[in-house]
Computed example of a mutant assay.
Amino acid sequence: MIRINFEDTFEPIEVATDLTDIKFYSRLKNGKLILLKIEIRPLTDPLLPNVFNLAFGPLNEEGKINDEIKVNHSNIGKMFSTVLLFALSFLRKNNSSTIGVDGSNDIRAYLYHRMFQTNKKYLCDVIITIGVDWYVRLLRNNTVEKDNLGFPFFKPKPEQFDYQRSTKDLYRYYMFHLNN
Rank of each mutant, 00 (worst) to 15 (best):
T82R: 03
H177V: 03
L35K: 10
R92C: 11
I69V: 14
A16W: 05
I4W: 02
R172S: 15
L59Q: 03
K70T: 06
N50W: 06
P49H: 02
T98W: 01
E14K: 08
W134V: 09
F52D: 03
K78C: 11
I40W: 02
S26N: 15
L111Q: 12
R165I: 04
L139I: 09
R27K: 15
L85P: 12
D21M: 05
M1E: 09
P152A: 07
M79F: 14
K78Y: 09
L123Q: 06
I2Q: 08
A16M: 07
L36E: 07
D18N: 15
K155W: 07
G77V: 04
W134C: 11
T167W: 12
L91E: 01
T17R: 12
N142S: 13
H113L: 09
V51N: 01
Y25F: 15
I13H: 10
I13L: 12
N60V: 05
F161W: 00
Y163N: 04
F151W: 11
F6E: 08
N94T: 09
R41F: 00
E68Q: 09
G150I: 07
N30R: 11
L28A: 14
N142F: 11
Y174M: 06
L28D: 10
G131I: 01
Q160L: 14
Y112W: 14
F10P: 12
T9H: 08
R137S: 13
I130Y: 00
I107Y: 07
N30M: 12
D18G: 10
F161P: 00
L35S: 07
E11P: 07
N95Q: 12
D21V: 04
M175L: 01
H73I: 10
G63N: 05
I34F: 05
L84V: 11
S96M: 08
T167R: 15
L138I: 13
L33G: 14
E7P: 07
R172L: 13
E39R: 01
P58G: 07
P152T: 06
F151V: 07
L59D: 02
L47F: 13
V132S: 01
S104E: 14
L88A: 12
D102T: 15
R27Y: 14
Y173L: 02
F86Q: 02
R41T: 02
N50K: 06
W134K: 14
N180Y: 08
S26F: 10
I107G: 06
N141T: 05
R41V: 05
K70N: 10
M115P: 02
K168V: 09
L33E: 15
Q164E: 15
R140I: 09
Y173P: 03
N50Q: 07
T118L: 12
D45H: 04
Y122E: 04
T98Y: 01
L35H: 04
G63M: 03
K29F: 11
I34R: 11
T20C: 01
P158F: 01
E145R: 05
E11M: 14
N95I: 05
G31Q: 09
N75R: 03
S74E: 15
N30Y: 12
K70P: 06
I4Q: 02
N142C: 11
K37D: 01
